[in-house]
Every structure is written in structure tokens, then in C-alpha cells.
């Protein structure tokens, strides 16, 4: 069972966070929250999202699992106006989700959850380096790197006390180092890993809206981004596998 009303903007933010990686997902409902964890088709990136009941204007749900067509939801969200209140109602018998907002009443078919990949287990990895970065700074650096390369190195230099992003093009080079003044916090442990910009671009657009993004890093290890949504009533986590350059 699910019947909840939420600010359209918060819902848009949540769906965008998932849509950066997947086109469909399994959404778990519980008495006090909704959550999802998905991996992209190539098993390279994971997203997990939690939205507490406090993020909603009203929330009433029982434990359940819905198959969401994220691509379709994104199209519907495009119709919503700022400030609209969106009511989500699960029509159990029809296996449909009704979205009503601003006079519209959409009823969309849910996907059979068995056709959607199971929630991936998060890999047990230790990422000792940590920087807390403003979301828009992170996104701007990714966009700048994308101009010259298809990969970007993220790292922490404990000597210089900086978190840095570096990209190497055929002829060009770009580096952005953020020191203590620009960072919210830094755990200065030596770290550097290389990532595909294609993945980061989509994540960056979502993270740009966050005041602070926690970035966890290691050496040739995945990166983990963690940030709040819905005024702290929700949390998104991205995990991205590194690129390892051949010697």
C-alpha cells in the first residue's frame, strides 16, 4: 500500500538522481520510507536512494516492492509545475501507480519486478580519503574536464591538503585543486583514481543541486558520493567503479 503527497520538486530531484544511471528500478516501500538500490547495465555504477516519510506532506505505506519505469516517470515529471503537490497512489489490484497533480491524473502501469534486476549488494570496500565539496563546484569541474577528455582523475593530496580533479586530453591538461578554504571538510589520506566522464556527467548534474557532497576515495578504487536531498529528509549515494589504465 502506498498513498503519499510530496512536493513536485522533491519528487523530480529524486527521480533525476535515479535516472542518471538506470531506466527502471525496484522501489521498496516501508512504514517510514521509500528506498531503491540499482546498478547500471554494465555493472559500473550504483545508485541508492532513501526518502524518509518526513520528506512527504503526508505518507502512508506498508512494506512492498514496485517496479518503476523511470524513463516514463521522467516524461510525466516534465508536465509538473513548480510548487505543485503530487499525490502518489498505488492502485494495488491493477498494479498501477496513480500520479495526480495540478488537475492531471496519470495512471501508469508498474513493471513486473521480476523483469528488473535484483538490488545489487554494495561491495565491501574501504575508501579512507574523504573530502566534502560543494555540489556545484564538483559539477563544474566535471563539465570542464569533459571538454578535453573522456576520463578524469579524482584525488587527495595530503601534503598540499587539497582535493583535486585532473584531466588529460590529447594535447590539453586541466587541473582544479580545492584547498581547505574551498572545502567543507577534508580527511587528508593519499588517494587517486581515474573515472569515466560519461558516468560522472549525469551524476554531476544531480549533485550540482546539493550544498555539500561527501566524496570518498582510495587508490585505484571506486568513488562514493553521498549527499542529502529533500532538505535532509532523503539521502543519495552513488558508487562508481574506476578505470584502470593499462601499463
Amino acid at each position: 500500500m502506498l498513498k503519499a503527497t510530496i512536493d513536485a520538486e522533491i519528487f523530480r530531484e529524486s527521480i533525476d538522481a535515479i535516472a542518471a544511471l538506470v531506466t527502471e528500478c525496484r522501489l521498496h516501500t516501508a512504514e517510514d520510507q521509500i528506498r531503491t538500490r540499482s546498478v547500471d547495465t554494465a555493472n559500473v555504477a550504483m545508485v541508492s536512494l532513501e526518502l524518509q516519510s518526513t520528506a512527504f506532506n503526508s505518507f502512508s505505506a506498508t512494506v512492498g516492492e514496485l517496479g518503476l519505469d523511470i524513463a516514463k516517470l521522467k516524461n510525466i515529471i516534465g508536465m509538473m509545475g513548480k510548487g505543485d503537490a503530487l499525490t502518489l497512489t498505488l492502485l494495488d489490484e491493477e498494479r498501477k501507480l496513480e500520479l495526480s497533480f495540478g488537475g492531471y491524473r496519470y495512471s501508469i502501469s508498474l513493471l513486473d519486478v521480476n523483469t528488473i534486476r535484483k538490488d545489487p549488494n554494495p561491495p565491501g570496500i574501504d575508501l579512507p580519503g574523504k573530502a566534502v565539496v560543494p555540489g556545484d563546484a564538483l559539477n563544474n569541474a566535471i563539465k570542464a574536464a569533459a571538454v578535453i577528455s573522456d576520463k578524469i582523475a579524482l584525488g587527495i593530496d595530503p601534503d598540499a591538503m587539497t582535493f583535486y580533479m585532473e584531466a588529460e586530453g590529447d594535447t590539453d591538461h586541466i587541473k582544479l585543486a580545492l584547498g581547505e578554504d574551498e572545502l567543507v571538510a577534508l580527511n587528508p589520506v593519499q588517494a587517486r583514481s581515474l573515472f569515466s566522464i560519461d558516468y560522472l556527467k549525469d551524476m554531476g548534474r544531480v549533485m550540482a543541486r546539493a550544498d555539500e557532497v561527501e566524496v570518498y576515495l582510495g587508490i585505484d578504487h571506486p568513488v562514493r558520493f553521498v549527499f542529502d536531498i529533500a532538505d535532509g529528509n532523503g539521502r543519495v549515494e552513488y558508487l562508481l567503479a574506476p578505470r584502470i589504465e593499462a601499463d
Partner: peptide, 8 residues
């Protein structure tokens, strides 16, 4: 170069 979390 791109690694992945697991393969099935």
C-alpha cells in the same frame, strides 16, 4: 580500462 563491480 573500465572496471565493474561484478560480473554475472
Amino acid at each position: 580500462e573500465q572496471t565493474s563491480f561484478f560480473i554475472q
